[in-house]
Simulated assay, not measured.
Amino acid sequence: MRRYTRTLVTAALTTTVVAGTAGWASGSAQQAVTGAPVGAEAWRADGLPDAERMTPSQVAAYFDGLTLDRQQALVRTHPSVVGNLDGAPLRLRYEANARTLGGRYAGQQVLAFDPRGRGQVALVSGDLTTAEHVAVIVPGSDIDAGNITPLTDKAEALRRATHGRTAVIAWAGYTTPVGVGLDAATGNLAEVGAERLTRLTDGLAATGVPAPSLFCHSYGSVVCGLAAHDLKAKDLVVFGSPGMRAANVAELRTSARVWAAKDPSDWIDNVPNVAFAGLGHGADPTAPAFGARRVPAADAPGHDGYFVAGTQSLRTFAAIAALPEGGAR
């Protein structure tokens, strides 16, 4: 009887979460991309250290011990590995990815590119080595290497709002859900994404980049919630969030400031904040009991409008990006 009841509750929850609002649509199941970068076998065959086992700080130390000529040789012979090694010098990663991609994303600084699956990419707006502040935008469903413009538009909007003082990474660095189906109602893709996001922030720290503010949209806030306790970040800002897989800020176990925004017209408000049998993502981060700082967003249009020019949310995002690390909480 208990098993039968659990099955009924799970089925009901699935129906509610996936089909309970017009904003949610069907989505196909995705296989998360994991493992070492493309070309890692050839890298290892040349007697180079295992790219999958090195931490970003170890990667940084390894490259620091190489001559400039040797660094350039690795870019020429193993561009797909160098371009995706968190902790490697930024200039080498940009150069390596430019070699791999040819004219694709021409004129843009490509911090990472993985062609597997639907493709993953991280594009940088601004100079990470000289900017006063750094921000990373973590997207939700449907963003990938072939559909990156919605994310880069947000990055450019944030950079303009900070008057160019913040370098912004448009990070499509994990396998996102397609549509808003069962993948978006579970944490499977977010768990892999959390590992990748953690390596990103570790890599930035290893190369001397200031601790970033993370702006996590929709399902991206699930990624940020699962990664929170390991992230080297000064702020976690979630918006249009279905939940962070935590009951409150304390459960995130982060020293970062936590902020949350949701505008009144966002359809995510119709998604039940539940978590049962692996489905749903828990508490609403904008609820007072969650304990996040509330970002005003009354004039943001819909689920995807938080970076629209002139909105309260974008102005506040820019102000958060400019906050000092370890400042007032």
Score class of each variant (00 low, 15 high):
Gly302Leu: 02
Ala292Gly: 06
Ser221Asn: 11
Ala157Thr: 09
Gly27Tyr: 07
Leu279Met: 13
Lys234Trp: 08
Arg118Ser: 14
Ser80Ala: 15
Gly243Gln: 11
Pro115Cys: 07
Arg70Phe: 02
Leu236Lys: 00
Ala61Asp: 15
Ser57Ile: 13
Ala205His: 11
Arg160Met: 09
Ala96Trp: 06
Asp46Trp: 06
Cys224Gln: 07
Ala60Pro: 02
Leu226Glu: 10
Ala205Thr: 13
Thr201Met: 00
Val136Asn: 00
Ala157Gly: 12
Ala321Asp: 01
Trp171Tyr: 13
Ser255Gly: 14
Thr100Arg: 10
Gly302Ser: 04
Val258Asn: 11
Ala131Gly: 10
Phe290Ala: 10
Gln108Ala: 12
Gly203Phe: 04
Thr10Gly: 03
Arg2Pro: 13
Arg2Lys: 11
Leu226Met: 12
Val33Met: 12
Arg91Val: 14
Ala287Gly: 10
Ala12His: 12
Val110Lys: 07
Ala32His: 10
Asp153Arg: 14
Trp171Leu: 04
Leu8Pro: 04
Ala287Asn: 13
Leu252Asn: 01
Ile137Ala: 00
Gly203Glu: 06
Gln109Trp: 02
Ala96Met: 06
Pro56Gln: 04
Phe113Leu: 10
Ala318Phe: 07
Glu156Pro: 00
Asn84Trp: 09
Ala206Thr: 07
Gly220Tyr: 05
Ala322Met: 15
Ala227His: 03
Val237Ile: 15
Gly126Cys: 11
Gly117Arg: 04
Pro272Ile: 04
Ala319Ile: 05
Gly310Lys: 02
Val110Cys: 04
Val38Ala: 14
Leu13Trp: 06
Arg118Pro: 14
Thr152Asn: 07
Leu8Thr: 07
Thr201Ser: 01
Thr21Ile: 02
